[in-house]
Simulated scan of single mutants.
Amino acid sequence: MTQTVLHIDASARTQGSTSRGLSAKIIERLNADTVIRRDLTSALPHVTEDWINANFTPADDRDAAQRDLLGLSDQLVEEAKAADTLVIGVPIYNFAVPASLKAWIDLMARVGLTFSYTENGPEGLLKGKRAIIAVASGGTQVGSDIDFATGYLRHIMGFIGITDVQFVAADALMADADAAMARANSAIEALAV
């Protein structure tokens, strides 16, 4: 069976990044046939009023400028749709996700494309996929009261229909880096391929 993975790295650090190292190990472990790469160090635009207006204009009624404005967002949506698995490398910055990852989420979570509204509330449209999220933090323990990253990411994944979400955490690295990395590496080895 062929497998396509969308590999997203959100760390601002391109060298020496723990989350990038972990996500690379996960990619290696999965041995996917196709890997779509999205590095968020290349800044994504933030949602603007013009973008929102374009997004809520019916597709057939959009003018050229609106289609152009939504072009990158459309590409991000297609990357997520094409993937069987999303592998996201994310550091915890100031107790939450980096702004670059939030920008990706804002551009990719689109009504009618990745979720829809029903009489029972929102329904994710990217069902049948899984997400493996490699988390690194210096002082924040994953799952603690001050971790505003992992719960948010689990919720967002579920919101777009991805309910099979696994975390590989190298957390509280400043307290005991060796133990944190050993736990993360064990979690990677235990991943189903």
Rank of each mutant, 00 (worst) to 15 (best):
A65V: 09
D106H: 02
W104H: 06
D60Y: 15
Q141W: 00
I105T: 01
G138F: 13
I88E: 00
I133C: 04
D61A: 15
R130V: 02
A83T: 04
T150C: 07
A82K: 13
L113C: 02
I160D: 01
D145Y: 09
D84Y: 07
T85D: 09
Q141E: 08
L153A: 11
L69S: 11
D68T: 13
A134P: 02
V142M: 11
A65L: 05
K102P: 08
E78M: 11
A103C: 04
I132F: 01
G139S: 14
A131H: 09
A170N: 09
A96W: 04
E78G: 04
P122G: 07
A59D: 13
M108Y: 05
V97I: 15
S137T: 09
L69M: 07
K102N: 10
Q141P: 01
A131K: 04
L153Y: 06
R154G: 03
I105K: 04
E119Q: 12
E78H: 11
D164Y: 10
R130E: 05
T140L: 08
S100R: 12
Q141I: 07
K81N: 08
I156S: 10
Q75N: 11
M108T: 13
L107F: 06
A169Q: 06
D145C: 01
I162R: 01
F159V: 01
E119L: 02
E123T: 05
Q166S: 15
G158W: 09
T140M: 03
R154K: 14
D60I: 13
T140I: 12
G161Y: 02
D60C: 10
A149F: 08
V77I: 14
G158N: 12
E78Q: 13
T140G: 02
S137G: 14
P98R: 09
D171P: 12
T118R: 07
Q75C: 09
L107W: 11
I162W: 00
Y152Q: 12
G158V: 10
G71M: 10
D84F: 05
G112A: 08
A83N: 03
A169N: 08
I146P: 08
F115P: 03
L126W: 00
P98V: 15
P98Y: 15
I160R: 02
G161D: 10
G158E: 05
L125W: 03
P122L: 00
R67D: 12
D60A: 15
S137Q: 04
R62C: 09
A149L: 03
F115M: 11
A99L: 11
N94Y: 04
V168T: 01
G121E: 06
W104K: 06
S73P: 09
D74S: 15
M108E: 05
G121F: 05
Y93G: 00
Y152H: 15
I92G: 00
A83G: 07
